[in-house]
Amino acid sequence: MSKKHSPATTVIGIDIGGTGIKGGIVDLETGTVLGERFRIPTPTPSTPQAVAKVVKAVVDELSTRSNAPSDDAPVGITFPAIISHGVARSAANVDESWIDADVDEIFTKEIGRDVQVMNDADAAGLAEARYGAGQGVKGTVLVITLGTGIGSAFIYDGKLVPNVELGHLELDGFDAETKASASARERDELSWDEYAVRLQRYFSHVEFLFSPELFIIGGGISKRSEDYLPQLKLRTKIITAELKNNAGIVGGALQAAVHFKLTK
């Protein structure tokens, strides 16, 4: 569609996950979600056609609200995959038929609006850099999400370097996320002390490779950060994310607003 849009103060953001598709109306000034988020379970199987219909249903519900942006405003969408020029190059927790699918085109056609699609971890990182724990930090900020796998976002001077898959670094002969993710801790029944040893190995390696100014830890396990973060010995400051479960929605909306020049 690629029409010209008027400057906006709010944008709809949609965060697609393996179990749920949630969305909200984002205030671009503050990075907050206005009102309640709206969530629909991710369909099974999570094929492009099925997911697109759910995304449209979420957008339609949010569009009925009094503080919704105009009906032709673009929508920001996060997706659990490597996204290159709107095309999925992987598929994490969604149907493999998404690989090499033009995600941008599929959602644009279904919703009937311009969309901007990005990787879900990148969206969370962008949100933290603009509105959260990384706000105003110069140099390299690495946002690491510990969950089913390890997601990552690379921010430099507030700008996103997309699709940096630091969860897939090889470490001691293994894919790092198979040993240091939150799900690996549960699978291997590790105590917090034992888990901290694995995290130390992972973060020391990432620190050596990139010398970041700041690590920001996200994912559900960040709520228990007091059980493991104090045990990590790093040169780099390491803190927890501030936007919690809204980070994907906020980052997706922000990316759409920047891409379509609704905001800087």
Results as ranks from 00 to 15, higher is better:
E170D: 08
G112W: 01
F79V: 09
D27N: 15
Q231N: 01
E207H: 13
A8K: 11
T30S: 10
A253H: 01
K233F: 00
G220W: 04
G139S: 05
G218D: 11
R235E: 09
F38A: 01
D188Y: 09
L232D: 07
L142K: 15
I216F: 07
R198M: 04
Y202R: 00
V94K: 06
R224Q: 15
K109L: 02
E186W: 04
V94H: 04
V54E: 05
F154V: 13
L142A: 14
A184S: 15
P212H: 06
L190S: 10
G167C: 10
T140G: 08
G139V: 00
E186M: 12
A196K: 11
K22G: 00
A176T: 10
V33L: 08
D122S: 06
H168K: 05
W98G: 08
S222N: 12
S90N: 01
L190M: 14
A129I: 04
E194T: 00
I150K: 03
V206T: 03
N245E: 13
L34S: 10
R185C: 00
D193K: 08
A57G: 01
H259R: 12
G220R: 02
I14G: 09
G132W: 14
N163Q: 10
K237T: 11
T30G: 05
K4G: 07
F203D: 00
L171Y: 09
